[in-house]
């Protein structure tokens, strides 16, 4: 998808989370780094309208987040930082079906897509498990599967590995690397982003650096460590 930020500003009564972001993203893998509170999460949430710009606009393939939110959310999936708070139904399979409901598929196709989505991430065996018995990493993979089952064009990740242990972090990292879809990943995990096409460094609500991973991460390490 072609993502365009046109002088996008996000301000609250107390502060400016993002000031005047102007850029175009169309790379397959885009990373976003920055210190805590810099505005990375806000930046990510602008992509699916969870946050709307208070001035300026954000468009995806020409769709404006302020007007075409439903159409955008059909094409943009979002994976959050907290693994367990994304799974909404008591059984994994039910949760995945929840996302598909709007697409009104016949039951058999729905079931096939759900199983395929889980299998693709190596968690096919979790389909009938109770959600509360999943580990953090399993939650995150199931959450990703729930997003992918809707066949989005773009997946946005907001610190997907921050709450995971090393093994689960690796599983999710592999899953992200293997995604067909375009991905924008906000992360503190710099290793995750080193093979990406482009990395943005957000500091104090602004894009302080915008380059390929090598130079951008070097800048980040020099100025924000």
């Amino acid at each position: 998808m072609l993502i365009e930020f046109d002088h996008a500003v996000v301000s609250t009564p107390h502060s400016q989370a993002l000031r005047g972001v102007n850029l175009t993203l169309d790379q397959q893998r885009v990373g976003v780094v920055g210190p805590n509170g810099a505005g990375k999460s806000t930046f990510a949430k602008l992509l699916n309208g969870l946050v709307l710009p208070t001035a300026g606009r954000v468009t995806l393939d020409g769709l404006d987040t302020r007007h075409d939110i439903k159409a955008i959310r059909r094409q943009v999936g979002f994976v959050f930082q907290n693994p367990e708070n994304q799974i909404v139904y008591p059984i994994v399979r039910e949760d995945m079906a929840f996302g598909l409901k709007a697409q009104r598929l016949p039951a058999e196709e729905s079931a096939q897509r759900i199983q395929a989505s889980l299998d693709g991430l190596g968690v096919g065996h979790l389909a009938d498990r109770a959600s509360h018995t999943l580990s953090g990493g399993e939650c995150q993979l199931v959450a990703l599967a729930s997003v992918l089952v809707m066949r989005p064009a773009l997946v946005v990740f907001d610190e997907p590995t921050t709450q995971l242990d090393l093994r689960n972090r690796n599983r999710v990292a592999r899953a992200i690397a293997g995604l067909e879809q375009q991905a924008v990943v906000v992360s503190h995990d710099l290793e995750l982003l080193q093979d990406f096409d482009r990395v943005l460094v957000v500091v104090d609500g602004q894009i302080a650096a915008d380059d390929s991973p090598g130079p951008a991460l070097r800048w980040y390490r020099e100025h924000c460590a």
Binding site: K70, Q86, G99, S146
Partner: peptide
Amino acid sequence: KRAQQVAQAIDARGE
């Protein structure tokens, strides 16, 4: 806090 995060996750999945 959980309610806020869960609501966002539901909204992000459209309807």
